[in-house]
Write a protein that binds this DNA or RNA. Sequence first.
RNA 1: GCCCAGGUAGCUCAGUUGGUAGAGCAUUGGACUGAAAAUCCAAGUGUCGAUGGUUCAAUUCCGUCCCUGGGCA
Length: 309
Amino acid sequence: MRLLAIVGPTASGKTQLGIALARALGGEILSADSQQIYRGMEIGTAKPTAEERAAVPHHLLDLAEPAELLSAGAWAREAERAIAEVAARGALPIIVGGTGLWLRALLHGLVELPEVDRALRVQLMEEGARLGSQALHTRLAAFDPKAAATIEPANLQRVVRALEILEQTGEGPSAHWERHRFRPARYQARLLGLSPPRELLYARIDARAAAMFREGLLEEARLLMERYPGAPALERAIGYREARAVLEGEMSIEKAIESTAMATRRYAKRQLTWFRREEALEWLPWPVDVGALIGRLGEEGWRGNYPVP
RNA sequence: GCCCAGGUAGCUCAGUUGGUAGAGCAUUGGACUGAAAAUCCAAGUGUCGAUGGUUCAAUUCCGUCCCUGGGCA
């Protein structure tokens, strides 16, 4: 099955480009964004607006409540289903998003494992907090030295995940990984990368952070916090955690804007690191010549059966 | 004008009983198989306010000056 994917760091213009391509090529958009899946988290996640969603069908937004957790695997299964639907309709599926792991989960699949056992995870994290990440890493090394060698002892999250796999399957993660290795590309995918010059990207991020607070992020966060107290997504997502600090009187708005922009810049940098490694990816020259790109993709047959407006 | 405290990395600061310095954050690079906007790893950076003196050697001690904050006038 053929599909297009537009990736890149946050604030690089993926949403806009996706819409332009979808309109011109008869496509529908599937978001690959780990935060835009949350209902109610609109401003802070820069979710496509109602107008944008009216212009082109969007999928995989608003899949969960902020209090819920959606695993990469669960999301990928949802995405497969949505892609099949879009394709069945004769439209070109266009994935738009910046969550590298989720893209990989969709395009290459993850190892086959049982769903995350929340209780087990909580228990292991508590142990980690008590005994230290190193101690759990030592335990992992005793059962699966290969996996332990690839995980930093200080990286509690990864150490715990590895121990979960061991507990749940009776087999160390390295055995699963070796059998899997992301080998099969499950779709005929054309990956396009957006990467504005760093200075410009950072300027856009700074402007966006300020705009979010100007456009009501605090109010949105306040309502969500009331409705979903302690929701992990609200504590984790950039912008929302800063908004919470403001609402709890721990931070000034100016500081929150600055801190949001800073965290976003760091996040964008990590996204770039992730996507740079993707060798099948074509980085589009900046600024993107959208008309030329549409022409080229159309000639190559990347289009749906929809009438081109 | 006088008194006190301070001036060290982009920022906040530590430090050197005299042998030209260091942490956190930022920045940059990297890792990533169901938390991924998460988590973790690595690296660079300095006319140590200026100037004169003492000394083999001054960012460190002494003098003068400049700047910042506070107090007194």
